[in-house]
Design a protein around this nucleic acid. Structure first.
Lengths: 357, 357
DNA sequence: CTCAATGTTGGGAGCGCTCCCAATAAGTCG
DNA sequence: CGACTTATTGGGAGCGCTCCCAACATTGAG
């Protein structure tokens, strides 16, 4: 027998948090284990009088059901995993990931799921983490941040047969559920805006070509130029990697091509690029106009205010969780595709206000 | 009976991930459940020949032990929770928290623990999250980010009797284990450095007085001035809240007191303050020197390079996890106190290089 | 008043492990 | 070679729940 509170009397003062079981509560309330279970799980068909008597005992004793026992018996852990692959280990140089994590965490609270976090730092990490992720009974579903081209993690996770949702379009998506924003459309919208403002030599600092986000945003850029009859000039396109330094360095390259506007595939890169412009003694937007991508509440302020594509990160995280729960509850077939919309936020860095006056 | 792979033969091709149990593996390997358990848990006293036969079956079938059953039987979940209280909901305006989270996550990988994340956004969240945290059998231990003065969450979590480690000195620490850096000493060191460089009117932008980190760093500032016989000038002290804006605003106030150097209690606030200085057309460090606090790999670069107190965030996270595991394995008495050291990183914003030449 | 329908309750049989102990096999030593 | 260790193995008894089904109580219509 496990240790029970000495005496087992019905005295008023009992430990606030105890190791009681359903059975113990049942005994104290003079009902059966099943009835207590019904009360705790808010099943109907319990007499109101009994229900409140049981609640009273639970309250008084500080009883909390045992998670492991519940999971084992019900085959449901109410836990989901968020996996961040190795290739997003620049996790913290870009505020995007923390924000996304927050959005997901909030949604988990909402839906009464517990979130566990798997940050894969190194290849060794991956080998240590993987068995934990795949342990049955631990996770009801997995959210996987889309990774670099060639990352094997998706394949391994798919094999698990656990409901899986990729956050961000994966390179190969046959039969795999994913959620993403419409990167092509968003970039197209941003660049079209610059075109409409009359800019002629629009450069871009893209995301890495090893990510679908980088690729899709470049596609949107190209599409916008083509649609408006602008020639594609390769010297106006440089590849960045979503870091501030790469924005700065990218801009140094772009100077040679004399752009009058730049579309940066992330705000952080835009900030780096604008730093390069300001150091060169040029004005924004008069000499070079800017449009960014993300619209995260930045930690750094200052002029000029960046025109940018707003990503609804928090809603995106919430929708990801909702979709995963759908996968958990209604089966993984057919694969779900969720594409969310973005919005162009016009501020001063694109020169729209000046031009309009 | 649960569904077993059809046929149950010993054919080579079996599902990579299955729902087999210990018992099933035992049958296939011609041994008992106990022996398979011993093999999986790497217990000694299994004949090498049997051991490898069992491993072979496990490999071939893709068996993974069930986490919930393990937890239930062993009363150990190998899971720890990281709780971020409401008052640190500016979680994402300061890169400190994401970094700390990463450090903790990495250490969890190291020690084979799974990390679950509880971000308390609102008071409602707290009520929804709390029962999940306190469910027995879910967490072996809890890491709680130190909160604002008056936050009731610590008290509630202490009542749980689960091993608990506060990250950052709590306001009331009687009997509670915590880990922190030596904020007083670090700030003292930073300000002493400015004094030694000959600055006479050293201002500070503090953290919020509702946090021990803010308070302790201010104490270190005051102590350094006193020790060196500098008078305390209240107009040289302004309270910030660890955001960039508050650094900017704080600096606007400080101008009136004509400081020749400023100690900012976080790098982000230093950046805000330096922005104010640069906008005012003053030079750093010639007109006003700066020392910050954190030394996080910032997302934003640019001149001047900030002299700052280096916090070993990753090691700090690792040490936090190690201490919590100590608490889990060796009992929560006596309360542990872990204080880690920091280091002053001298770069250009304090003017040390100029002065030395 | 009877019978069926419905509401309420209790207990058995797991869920898939770990841990303990007893049983057996294999060594060891005088 | 027999008595005693020691290494190896198997199975029982939980861990604390959920889910199902049977038992019983209650209700209302005929």
């Amino acid at each position: 027998m496990r240790a029970l509170p000495k005496g087992g009397s019905t005295a008023e003062l009992e430990p606030l948090v105890s190791n009681l079981t359903l059975e113990d509560i049942a005994k104290k309330a003079g009902v059966s284990r099943s009835t207590v279970s019904r009360v705790v799980n808010e099943h109907p068909n319990v007499r109101p009088e009994v229900r409140s008597r049981v609640w009273e005992v639970i309250r008084r004793t500080g009883y909390h059901p045992n998670a492991a026992a519940r999971t084992l018996a019900s085959q449901r852990s109410w836990m989901i995993g968020l996996v961040l692959p190795r290739s997003v280990s620049f996790f913290f140089t870009d505020p995007y990931y923390p924000h996304l994590t927050q959005g997901i965490a909030q949604a988990c609270n909402q839906y009464n799921y517990t979130l566990s976090l798997f940050i894969v730092g190194t290849e060794d990490d991956e080998e240590k983490i993987f068995p934990r992720i795949s342990r049955r009974g631990l996770l009801d579903g997995i959210l996987l941040q889309s990774a670099e081209h060639g990352d094997r993690l998706i394949d391994r996770l798919v094999e698990l047969n656990t409901p899986l949702l990729i956050v961000g379009r994966p390179f190969q998506s046959n039969g795999i559920s994913y959620i993403d924003i419409d990167n092509v459309k968003a970039a197209h919208r941003a660049v079209s805006h610059l075109i409409q403002l009359g800019y002629k030599r629009i450069g871009t600092i893209t995301g890495p070509n090893s990510s679908t986000a980088g690729l899709d945003r470049k596609t949107g850029y190209l599409k916008a130029l083509e649609e408006h009859g602008h020639a594609i000039d390769q010297s106006l396109i440089v590849e960045g990697d979503f870091t501030e330094e790469s924005g700065y360095a990218g801009m140094q390259h772009l100077f040679a091509a004399h752009p009058d506007a730049v579309f940066a595939a992330s705000d952080i890169m835009a900030i780096g690029a604008m730093r390069a412009v300001q150091e060169a003694g040029l004005r924004i937007p008069e000499d070079i106009a800017f449009v960014g991508f993300d619209d995260l509440p930045l930690t750094i302020h200052g002029q000029p205010l960046l025109t940018t594509v707003h990503q609804p990160v928090l809603e995106f995280g919430a929708k990801a969780v909702e979709t995963l729960i759908d996968l958990i509850e209604n089966g993984i077939e057919p694969a779900r595709r969720v594409i969310m919309d973005t919005e162009l936020i016009v501020r001063s860095s694109c020169g729209a206000s000046q031009k309009r006056q």
